[in-house]
Amino acid sequence: MNLTVNGKPSTVDGAESLNVTELLSALKVAQAEYVTVELNGEVLEREAFDATTVKDGDAVEFLY
């Protein structure tokens, strides 16, 4: 899956889609429990991480 992460191209191997929690784990995001996630310009509530799917071509920003 090809994404733009914090403005840079990134690839997650072996996945066509992941939820936000899985993406944080796959990318080994440090202190993931404290990060705010913006997906395609929309800031996500932490409670929505498990239910929100990240797909090929999406833009993700991790805000600390």
Rank of each mutant, 00 (worst) to 15 (best):
N6A: 05
L18E: 00
L44D: 00
T52I: 11
A32Q: 10
N40E: 01
A51S: 14
G41R: 04
V29M: 07
D13M: 15
S25E: 10
A59T: 14
K28F: 07
R46Y: 07
K28A: 08
V60D: 03
E45P: 13
L63A: 11
V35F: 09
M1E: 01
G57K: 05
L44Q: 02
L39P: 00
A15K: 12
D50T: 09
V20N: 00
Y64Q: 07
T21E: 05
F62R: 01
V43M: 10
Y64R: 06
A15L: 10
K55N: 08
L3M: 05
D58T: 03
E45I: 09
A15I: 11
A59G: 06
T36L: 11
A15T: 10
K28N: 11
S10H: 15
V12C: 08
T53M: 14
T52K: 06
T52W: 05
T52G: 01
T4I: 13
G14S: 09
V12W: 09
A59Y: 13
T52F: 06
A51F: 14
L24R: 00
N6C: 12
E33S: 10
S17V: 11
V37I: 08
A59D: 08
L44N: 00
D13N: 13
P9M: 09
G14W: 14
V5G: 01
L23Q: 00
Q31G: 13
N6K: 01
A30I: 11
K28T: 05
A15Y: 15
D58P: 02
V20P: 00
K28Y: 06
F49E: 00
S17P: 08
T4V: 11
E61A: 11
Y64I: 09
E61P: 00
A59P: 02
E61I: 14
R46S: 06
Y34E: 07
A51M: 13
E38V: 15
D58I: 03
V5H: 03
F49Y: 12
A30C: 15
V37Q: 00
V60L: 12
L3Q: 01
A26E: 05
V29I: 13
T53S: 09
L27Q: 01
L39V: 06
N6M: 05
Y64A: 07
V43I: 12
N2L: 11
E33P: 09
Q31C: 15
E42G: 06
T4Y: 10
V37M: 04
A15C: 13
V29E: 03
L24F: 05
A48W: 10
V54A: 02
E45M: 12
G7F: 04
A48G: 06
V60W: 03
E45G: 10
F49M: 04
V54R: 01
A32Y: 10
N2W: 12
G14F: 12
G7M: 04
L27R: 00
D56H: 07
E42W: 10
V5N: 02
K55Y: 11
V29C: 11
D13Q: 14
K55T: 08
L3A: 03
E33A: 12
N6R: 02
R46E: 04
T11R: 15
V5Q: 02
A48L: 12
N6E: 02
G41F: 04
N2A: 10
A30W: 14
F62D: 02
A15E: 07
L18F: 08
E61W: 15
A26M: 13
A51C: 13
E33G: 09
N19T: 15
T52V: 10
Y34I: 12
S10E: 13
D50E: 10
N6V: 02
N40V: 02
A32E: 07
Y34N: 09
L18H: 03
E38S: 15
D50V: 07
F49Q: 03
N6I: 01
D56F: 05
A26L: 14
A30D: 11
V12I: 14
S10K: 14
V60M: 05
L27W: 05
E45W: 08
E16P: 10
T21M: 08
G14P: 05
G41Y: 04
D58E: 03
N2F: 11
T21F: 08
M1D: 01
G7N: 05
D58Q: 01
R46G: 04
N40S: 01
G41C: 06
T36M: 11
M1F: 13
Q31T: 08
N2D: 05
V29K: 03
E61H: 12
S17R: 11
E42P: 00
T21K: 08
G7Q: 04
D50C: 08
L3S: 01
L3F: 07
V43R: 12
V43W: 07
E47H: 12
L27C: 08
K55D: 03
V35Q: 04
F49H: 10
G14H: 09
K8P: 02
V54C: 04
K8E: 09
S17Q: 10
V35G: 02
N19E: 02
D58Y: 04
V12A: 03
K28L: 07
A15S: 09
E38I: 15
A59E: 12
L24K: 00
K55G: 06
T21G: 05
F62A: 02
A15H: 13
R46A: 06
V12G: 02
S10M: 15
L23V: 04
S10I: 15
K55C: 08
N40D: 01
N2M: 12
N2H: 13
L18V: 06
Y34R: 10
A51G: 10
K55Q: 09
V5D: 01
T11M: 10
D56K: 05
D56V: 05
V20G: 01
L39G: 00
D56P: 07
M1S: 00
Y34T: 09
